[in-house]
Simulated assay, not measured.
Amino acid sequence: MSERFPTLAGLIAPHSLQHFLEHHWEREHLHVLGRPDEARASLVSLEAVDAMLTTRVNRHPDVSVVNATHPVEPEDYTDGEDLVDPIRVARLFAAGGTIIINNLDQYSPRVRALVSQLEAELRVHAQANLYLTPGGAQGFAAHYDSHDVILVQVIGQKQWRLYDSPKGLPMRGERFDPAATKPGERTAELLLQPGGVLYIPRGLMHDAVAVDDGPSMHVTIGLHAFRWSEVLLESLAAQAIVDPDLRAGLPLGALRSDASVDALREAMRARVDRLIDAMRWDDVSPRLLAQFDRDHKEHLPGLMIDAVTPITAETVFARRGGVHAEVALDGEALVLTVDGRSTRWPAAVAPMLTAALTHEGPFRMADLGDDLDDPGKLTLLRRLLGEGAVSIAR
């Protein structure tokens, strides 16, 4: 199973990926102990974050500041047009505020690569945010998120507290209401150190405090998996296109108090039964995959350089990570789809195309077989470079 999801497996190692999927995903937290020398601890540096905050033009909510004990408003660190003032951000940070950089994957190539690879492997949307908290401070009161999160501690230490939660698996985008939802009894308390990872399923209430004199910095990767409710809604939408009864309006007067409730219940049940009989996973999955491809965060470093680099029989290539590439037969032609963009290829190149897209590690032209002559192989590889499916190894 680790072969299917190697990036996720690397994040939770040495824990078993199968155990995580069977016992933790959407069920229970998982704490992965870390060491400062682990690669996870160098995901992003404090110097790089400082540069993001001080050398770019930032707007709210791309950058925001929060404080669990002293409420902070956007007006406290922005001008009248949502432009972030780094001087005021620094003052709020020194006073105990937590700085948040949303969509960190848009600014950090390394984080972008991680997010892109997770998306391509899991076929879920992912987003990375960064949280920088001064020692002894707390950004948020106890709350839950409406999506699953994987936290990677980069600098400093943070004490996390988990609580018995009254809300299980909230809907996508369901906002946490502190007045309506209170944390239950504390169920776990753990210390996240550099290189450490914490998985928190959606709906599990939690809070955290930076525990030492120096700042704490962690990256949160939100995983937005499709829900079964969304699958059923997609099925309903697809069936309504071909079933006039599902598009029909309610009988006039159906909402009156004197309407025939039994008849309406029977009519609704008949439509539900017919919908269940017509539902097919194969009808819905292409629509969900199209949604995923449309929003997938591509990571294509070197694409522009590859476009103008001469290639020869000695050029070393590599399958590009973080892209979603599939090959399908359409009549007498092949259709290659890379992150939602489709191109047609002669069916005769199927073995070489498959070899290039599945090859583990670097490869040269000669490693793809003998179905084409050398000029044909170079043409195929040049097209794959242009589609972003492979890259020149450097």
Rank of each mutant, 00 (worst) to 15 (best):
P215W: 02
H19G: 15
M171V: 04
F176C: 00
E22H: 15
R341H: 10
G369V: 10
D37Y: 06
F292C: 09
F317G: 06
E47W: 04
A355R: 05
S45Y: 00
L378E: 01
G249D: 11
P362R: 12
L104V: 04
A142R: 07
A51C: 05
E234S: 13
P86Y: 06
A128I: 02
A225I: 00
K377E: 09
P166E: 09
L334Q: 02
D207I: 07
R382W: 11
A180H: 05
P244A: 02
E119T: 10
M279P: 03
E121N: 02
L104S: 00
R269N: 11
D207H: 05
P86H: 01
R4N: 00
L192D: 06
R40A: 02
V231K: 00
V209A: 08
V261E: 04
G136Q: 09
F140M: 09
M352T: 01
L303G: 01
A254Q: 06
S16Q: 03
L92K: 04
G97N: 03
A270P: 02
E266L: 14
G388H: 04
D213M: 10
G369H: 14
R269T: 13
G135K: 13
P178L: 04
A348Q: 07
V335Y: 05
H224P: 04
V219D: 02
A290M: 05
A90Q: 01
A51G: 05
D212N: 12
